[in-house]
Design a protein around this nucleic acid. Structure first.
Lengths: 241, 241
DNA sequence: ACCTGAACACCGTTCAAGT
DNA sequence: ACCTGAACACCGTTCAAGT
């Protein structure tokens, strides 16, 4: 039980401000889940490049090689992160509403789940079809596409793309990464706007008119809403007559 | 001129088979353009992870640090690769056809340009608005969206997403990466299909029906065509009445 | 102008070993 | 079952120096 007490002792090594936010006050026992959780937090605050076997080990006060007990390699860790992300999707129950309303709801549920984690959203792409919640998501989407009148093959093509599009919607929203803030963010935006201002107005009238909306994203919610609408309307538009 | 002769001598160090394809028989003078060209070729054959300052230096029989004369850092090299890609877009001339026909033509021109380079397509995302051919592309797209009746702000949101969607269309086409071929590719497909076959048919009828199209991408051309159609139809669908 | 050499702080990963 | 220690082959990058 001295062992248990040791595990539960408050960490008292000096932490930088950011680390305080991330690393738990209580040293928890290492496990795939807690590693994934800290990896997600790390990616959110410092980007996917910061998610490193060695860095995670350090945050858990453990040797890098300890990670290899819980994950066979880094790829497996990324799989774990993606599964966490996909598992966070809260699908609405099927209803008797028309297929387009339900499809929109499903895409939005997916978007809402991954939106807090733009830097790891891309990891979900190749991993949807290899975990249970992803398969459920795909099944629902495919069902609605069939209901819309698409053939099985077209449903597969379109369904793949729709999920892929939602991911790239959150992974690549315009403007500087959301996690850079304050003066630095302002500076990046100013720089981008200055680049636009130097353009010949006669050749780029529409780029200049869009100006600010291109450099920052005028309104994030609008950006997501209009493009989700676009995707659903697109399916509506390609149905066989 | 001994210098010139030295530059022109055929390389006679032993090459592996792949290197023969990639590295020019004549050792050319180092320049940003030839470095970018070999980086693109390297990414196409071995993926973006293989594009490394040290690896490129090695292929040009030069010290890694020599690269830093031509590019301030790796980011600048990636910028160069992206510019090359965007510069390869061959936009059709404006016509008096309706906006949707022209928009579809523009998106297709973009797709055709990047389709041969799926592993670096993603680099283009953040760099379209910082090089001349990218600005021209954006200007044309925005103009057509305005012609479709969208407000400047919505045009910006939608235009950003459309280009982003085309990129993710080629960067993430379903199935194993195109550059793995032959027996290895077959094996990966078999493995994925086996995963599907193990699913309970009652819970995943549509995934199973789509089966092969999800695991391989039944027809690449179809995949691109239907989803380009979807994007254009989507714009049509969200126009103000 | 263009490139080299040595060095630094990082990676992921293997293998043998400890408890 | 879970972790350590030493080692290897890689990264990007800086800085001083060569021609």
């Amino acid at each position: 039980m001295a062992y248990v007490i040791h595990l539960a002792r408050p960490t008292c090594t000096p932490y930088s401000e950011e680390m305080v936010k991330r690393v738990p006050a209580i040293k928890t026992r290492l496990s795939p889940d807690v590693i994934v959780a800290s990896a997600v937090a790390l990616a959110d605050t410092e980007g996917l490049e910061a998610v490193t076997i060695r860095r995670l080990a350090q945050e858990h006060e453990v040797t890098p090689m300890a990670m290899y007990w819980h994950f066979s390699d880094k790829e497996a860790l990324l799989d774990g992160i993606a599964e966490y992300l996909i598992g966070a999707v809260r699908l609405p129950e099927p209803t008797d509403q028309p297929w387009d309303v339900q499809l929109r709801a499903i895409l939005e549920a997916f978007l809402v789940a991954i939106r807090p984690h733009p830097s790891i959203a891309g990891l979900a792409l190749k991993r949807i079809l290899v975990c249970e919640p992803g398969l459920v998501l795909a099944e629902r989407a495919l069902g609605l596409l069939r209901a819309a009148g698409l053939s099985p093959d077209k449903s597969a093509d379109v369904g793949t793309f729709l999920l892929c599009a939602v991911i790239s919607l959150v992974a690549n929203e315009p403007g500087p990464k959301r996690r850079v803030a304050g003066e630095e963010r302002e500076e990046m935006i100013r720089h981008k706007m200055a680049g636009f201002a130097a353009l010949p107005p006669s050749r780029y009238p529409n780029v200049l008119a869009a100006g600010k909306s291109l450099a920052v994203c005028a309104d994030e919610d609008d950006y997501f809403a209009v493009n989700l609408d676009l995707l659903v309307a697109g399916v509506r538009g390609i149905r066989p007559a």
